[in-house]
């Protein structure tokens, strides 16, 4: 008896000779799934307010630490009523975008316009898709925020990621934003009640502030960004915004990086 599990179920070496491992795969060893993201987008931030949700992400796609693509739109409209914000791998984002386009065409086949997918349905769908892919050990390397309105026309905001984890909160941020932007947003919307008091102007202001802080401190970020406001009236998506009123006065107080000798 051969007690090595890897030998079980195989032709016996002492009878048939050693197994020719080159038959196992066609060329370069076993099939490998995604091991790491390649071209990546950084944080997405979003906050609810009384009539809807504001969501933003910058327009950068990095290749490692190289700022490779500077006009990448990471906020995608769905069915004119929801917005998905994508962090992580850009090619997986493109795959998801095409997948969602197909889904929205399927929706358009139905003649009754009253029953289209809302943000809550969309988030459920995406989280199931992400979990399915991680269970195949072939994840889509993204963290997503879904912003829109739910079936009661109330603001809806939720996250899902490459593991299929789901989360919802009055404010959400992915990537570096979860460390840098989340505390700022929580000052204004610590809970649902406070979020329901926020005006649209204030929410936009908070998000812009977060984008600014992210640009100050996240080396994979950029000062051009997209921002979307989702209300009952629809989606107002602007894809070519520039950070304003930056102040780098704090910078000379930062010590201990790069070539500084102090």
């Amino acid at each position: 008896m051969d007690h090595r599990p890897q030998a079980w179920g195989r032709p016996r070496d002492d009878v048939y000779g050693a197994y020719d491992a080159s038959y196992m795969s066609t060329n370069n060893g076993p099939t490998q799934h995604t091991q790491q993201p390649i071209v990546t987008g950084t944080s997405v931030v979003a906050i609810k307010f009384k009539d809807g949700v504001v969501i933003a992400a910058d327009n950068l796609a990095s290749y490692g630490s190289l700022a490779r693509f500077t006009d990448v739109k990471r906020l995608r409209k769905f069915a004119g009523t929801s917005v998905v914000g994508f962090g992580g791998d850009v090619s997986d984002m493109q795959y998801l975008d095409r997948h969602l386009t197909e889904l929205s065409i399927d929706e358009a086949y139905k003649s009754d316009p009253g029953h289209s997918l809302n943000a809550r349905n969309l988030h459920k769908y995406l989280s199931k898709l992400m979990y399915h892919r991680r269970s195949k050990f072939d994840p889509l390397w993204n963290s997503l925020l879904v912003a829109g309105l739910d079936d009661e026309q109330k603001p809806f905001l939720a996250a899902t990621d490459l593991l299929g984890t789901t989360f919802t909160s009055p404010s959400l941020a992915t990537g570096f934003g979860s460390v840098l932007a989340q505390p700022i947003m929580r000052r204004y919307a610590p809970d649902e009640e406070s979020a329901a008091q926020l005006t649209q102007e204030k929410a936009v202001e908070v998000i812009k502030e977060c984008m600014k802080v992210l640009f100050y401190r996240d080396a994979r970020s950029m000062d051009k960004y997209s921002i979307a406001v989702i209300t009952k009236d629809g989606v107002d998506l602007k894809e070519d915004e520039k950070l304003e009123n930056q102040s780098w006065a704090f910078a000379d107080r930062i010590k201990g990086y790069g070539t500084q000798t102090v």
Binding site: A61, F69, D71, V72, K73, R74, V90, Q94, D97, R98
Partner: peptide
Amino acid sequence: DSELEAPVDGEVGS
């Protein structure tokens, strides 16, 4: 047929 620049599904940049 869209009168805008030919739309590409999943296009990220311009």
